[in-house]
């Protein structure tokens, strides 16, 4: 199911249609080339981008302009990449970062 606004009463029909393939947590998805990873994932109905390192609580986008760092994911093996500032490219491998081991937590 897409959440894209293909037609808009003022902005008109969407012009971009250059879809590329990427994976998120080993599953395949399509996104528009160079749109943000956050937008591509949301268009595919994915809101949970990671689990908090300490508490394990689910997190998604918040500010969408790179300030809050809530949307960080691993892209092609590199951790801590902000999904809202990263353009989608063909063949990108994206993974959620999750809860880390802790000696304090029970």
């Amino acid at each position: 199911m897409t959440r894209r606004i293909l037609d808009h009463p003022i902005l008109g029909k969407m012009e971009d249609n250059n879809y590329v393939s990427f994976t998120f947590n080993q599953k395949g998805y399509k996104g528009l080339e160079n749109e943000s990873l956050a937008a591509a994932l949301l268009a595919n109905g994915i809101r949970t981008l990671r689990h908090h390192e300490e508490s394990g609580s689910p997190r998604g986008i918040y500010c969408n302009i790179g300030h809050c760092y809530e949307c960080r994911v691993s892209v092609d093996g590199q951790q801590g990449i902000r999904a809202c500032l990263t353009p989608v490219k063909e063949g990108m491998t994206v993974e959620s970062d999750g809860q880390l081991p802790s000696s304090k937590r029970r």
Partner: peptide
Amino acid sequence: WTLPGVMSVGAAQVMTNVHRVKP
């Protein structure tokens, strides 16, 4: 407010009008 689906109002604006994706 940390639940996925909670976002700043500006985030929803950019998703809707620029990326053309419904929040």
